[in-house]
């Protein structure tokens, strides 16, 4: 049994050393908004925040999280940037199948938190690792720009 800090709370988990955070979140804590896409940090569907930093949870191990604040998609609306990104995603109907969008949103929030008005090129560079097989990319790009506008207002 170990303790993790997740979405502002302390939670107890049983997972053994070597278990990826992704599976702890999904199978043990039953928070299924964080998605399994590839398991090798090549698609970004599993992106969560570790101390505010977008991180691939499929390559993050449960034993390495002492004192780390984990945030998942389920809690991102509580963040001002997170709420703005969700609003932009709603206005532009960014999603199609939606399976990658938790990860897209977590990455976008990370970008806008450190860079409140990114250029299209900066968006492309930052979001590169988040694959979307439906290819909603231009709406993702527009969504990040729209969220920046919302935050500026």
């Amino acid at each position: 049994m170990r303790e993790l800090r997740l979405n502002g709370k302390t939670v107890k988990v049983e997972a053994e050393n070597g278990t990826p955070l992704l599976w702890v979140i999904r199978d043990e804590l039953k928070l299924t908004g964080t998605k399994f896409g590839c398991g090798v940090a090549a698609c970004g569907a599993c992106t969560v925040h570790l101390d505010g930093e977008p991180t691939r949870s499929c390559q993050t191990y449960v034993e390495d999280l002492d004192g780390v604040e984990i945030t998942t998609i389920e809690a991102i609306s509580g963040d001002q940037v997170g709420a703005a990104v969700q609003q932009a995603w709603t206005e532009l109907d960014v999603v199609q199948c939606g399976y990658c969008q938790s990860g897209q949103i977590m990455s976008a929030v990370g970008l806008l938190t450190s860079n409140p008005s990114p250029t299209a090129e900066e968006i492309d560079t930052h979001m590169w690792g988040n694959a979307c097989r439906c290819a909603t990319y231009q709406r993702i790009r527009a969504g990040v720009q729209r969220a920046a506008e919302i935050l500026e207002a």
Binding site: T32, G33, I73, S77, D93, G98, I105
Partner: peptide, 11 residues
């Protein structure tokens, strides 16, 4: 859209 941006959509 709503359920696909807050993690509640069930796949």
């Amino acid at each position: 859209t709503p359920a696909k941006i807050d993690g509640t959509a069930q796949f």
